[in-house]
Amino acid sequence: MSQDPSSPHDKNPFEVLGLQGTEDLPAIRKAFLRLAAQSHPDRLRMKSQEEKAQALELFLSAKKAFEVLSQPDKRREWSDRMARPKSAPTPAPQTPSAPMTPPAEASSAPVASRPGPALTPAHGVPVASPSPPTPPSSAAPRAPSGMHPTAEPKPASRAGPLPAMVALQLYKMGMLALESSDYAKALDLFAKAAKVSPTPRHQAMELVCRGHQYLSTRFFDRARESFERALQLLPECREARAGLDQIDKQSSRYLKGR
């Protein structure tokens, strides 16, 4: 399946092969053969299973990149895409700071002195001046019944999606990718589903997709081992049984051709 340059999720085939984007087809083929010789699983028999799996993924990525760049129109599209300059991020507009208002100066007007007690002209007894009325204080708002006056209401927490729902969605997308023979995408989706919800079904489907990748490169023994491990985890896995039947058919045709 060829890559689409408009999709942001596809890897750049030039970058997968370690190229600059201006090479011709002979240079692309030479880079692919160099990567294939380094990452072919037959050269890593003494390595661990994890290193073998990484080497196989690198080999399949290089093979897919070479298939894309072998087409002149796809090679031209990827070259034009790498030649386009990346747009620089636009700086965020700065908001003008509000002018600072100078602090209000104290009024220089003299403070009026309070009038002293008035004397009655008749008896000369001081009479106190009436005090100004005190304004009523604003009453504090009442808290609702059943709540402490100092307690503040807490916002309701938003619950995220359940892991089982996320794993189910990833599983459905992985089955669609498996039906369209996009084994690399299906393997990635089933691996994520097994990480979110490690059930035997998700782990078995991850092994099924890995077996199909081995089968596409004619590594029949490793493909058979992956399908058999999937049946050990999930004996009713129909996809693993179909993969074993496909191994028998392809291996017999391959031996007759040789």
Rank of each mutant, 00 (worst) to 15 (best):
S2Q: 02
Q3W: 09
P5V: 07
H9L: 11
K11N: 00
K11L: 11
P13W: 02
F14H: 15
E15Y: 14
L17P: 14
L19D: 14
L19Q: 07
Q20A: 15
G21F: 08
D24N: 12
I28C: 09
I28V: 14
A31F: 10
R34I: 06
R34D: 15
Q38F: 09
S39A: 06
P41D: 05
P41E: 02
D42P: 00
D42Y: 00
R43Q: 03
L44D: 00
M46V: 00
M46R: 01
K47C: 04
S48W: 02
Q49H: 00
E51D: 09
K52S: 11
A53H: 03
A55H: 06
F59D: 09
L60I: 12
S61F: 09
A62D: 05
K63G: 15
K63H: 12
K64Q: 09
K64F: 08
Q71C: 03
K74T: 06
R76S: 13
E77N: 10
E77Y: 00
E77V: 09
D80K: 11
D80A: 10
R84V: 06
K86E: 14
K86A: 15
A88R: 14
P89F: 02
T90P: 01
P91D: 02
Q94N: 04
T95E: 04
T101Q: 06
T101L: 13
T101A: 01
P103V: 10
E105Q: 11
S107C: 10
P110A: 08
G116A: 02
A118S: 12
H123C: 15
G124L: 13
V125T: 15
P132H: 00
P133F: 01
T134P: 08
P135E: 07
P136D: 03
P136T: 10
P141H: 04
P141F: 01
M147G: 05
P149V: 03
T150H: 04
R158W: 04
L162W: 05
P163G: 04
P163S: 08
M165V: 08
L168A: 11
L168D: 13
Y171V: 11
K172Q: 12
G174S: 10
M175R: 11
L178G: 05
L178M: 09
E179I: 03
E179F: 01
S180A: 11
S181C: 12
A184T: 12
K185M: 07
A186D: 04
L187P: 01
L189C: 07
L189D: 06
L189F: 09
A191D: 04
K192Y: 13
K195D: 13
H202Y: 10
C209R: 07
C209G: 07
C209F: 01
G211W: 01
Y214S: 01
A223S: 11
A223Y: 10
R224C: 09
A230W: 08
A230R: 06
Q232I: 02
Q232C: 00
L233K: 12
P235N: 04
R238N: 10
R241T: 14
A242D: 14
G243K: 00
G243C: 03
L244P: 07
D245C: 03
D245N: 05
D248Q: 14
Q250D: 12
S252L: 15
R253D: 07
Y254D: 15
L255E: 12
K256V: 15
K256S: 15
G257H: 03
R258A: 08
